[in-house]
Amino acid sequence: MRSDARLLLVDKNVVERLLVPDDVIAAVREAFELHSRRHGRVFPVVREKLSTGGVFGIKSGDVGSQGLLGFKAAGFWPGNRSAGGEAHQATVLLFDPASGRPLCVIDGNAITTARTAAAGAIGLSLLSRQDSAVATVFGTGNQARAQLEFALQARPALRKVHYVSSDRAPRLEFEAGLAGRIELICTEDANAAVRQSDLVITATTGGKPLFEAGALRAGTHLNCVGADTRGKRELPDGALDTARVVADDLDQARGLGELQWMPQTPAVEIGDLLTGKIPLRRDPGDITVFDMTGLALQDLTVARLVYRKAVEQDLGTSVAWPW
Rank of each mutant, 00 (worst) to 15 (best):
P322I: 02
V105D: 04
I25M: 00
T205A: 09
K232E: 06
R168Q: 08
A135E: 03
S65E: 15
L274G: 14
L9H: 01
D237Y: 05
A31M: 02
S99D: 12
T275C: 03
V92F: 09
Q130K: 11
P266F: 07
G294F: 09
M1I: 01
D62I: 00
L280F: 07
D249A: 14
R37S: 12
G316V: 01
A5K: 12
T317C: 09
L256Y: 14
G226Y: 06
D249P: 01
L297Y: 13
A154L: 10
R244F: 13
A303P: 08
L300T: 04
A227V: 06
K309D: 14
F56W: 15
W77E: 11
E212W: 00
N109F: 13
L305K: 10
A110H: 11
V200R: 02
A239V: 00
L93A: 15
G85W: 09
N80Y: 13
F138V: 01
D286M: 11
A90P: 01
W261F: 15
G54Y: 12
Y307H: 13
I278T: 13
N13P: 00
P21C: 02
P170W: 07
M292K: 03
G226C: 04
D314Y: 13
D107Y: 01
R217P: 12
A110V: 07
D241G: 00
V311Q: 15
P78Q: 07
G141A: 13
D4C: 01
A73H: 02
G141K: 12
L68T: 09
I106E: 08
I111M: 03
T202Y: 01
R254A: 07
V319Y: 10
Q298R: 12
C104I: 11
R171N: 13
T317G: 02
T301F: 14
V194W: 03
L184H: 02
F174T: 08
I111A: 03
K12Y: 00
K277M: 10
A320Y: 05
I287W: 00
A98H: 08
L235V: 12
R37V: 06
D189L: 04
S166C: 06
K160P: 04
S318Y: 14
F174Y: 12
D96S: 08
I58G: 10
F211N: 09
E30Q: 12
E312L: 11
S3M: 04
F95A: 10
P279F: 01
Q313G: 14
Q264R: 07
L103G: 05
V164F: 08
A157G: 03
A157D: 10
D248H: 01
L274E: 14
S60D: 07
V55L: 15
A193S: 07
L250I: 13
L93P: 08
A87D: 13
P266R: 10
A98F: 05
A144I: 05
F76E: 04
T136P: 05
A157L: 05
M262H: 10
R81C: 11
N142P: 01
G64F: 06
K232T: 05
R145L: 05
G40Y: 00
T91K: 06
L240T: 08
E48W: 06
D248M: 02
R47K: 10
A247T: 04
L240E: 08
A119F: 10
G64E: 15
W321Y: 09
D237W: 08
P322A: 06
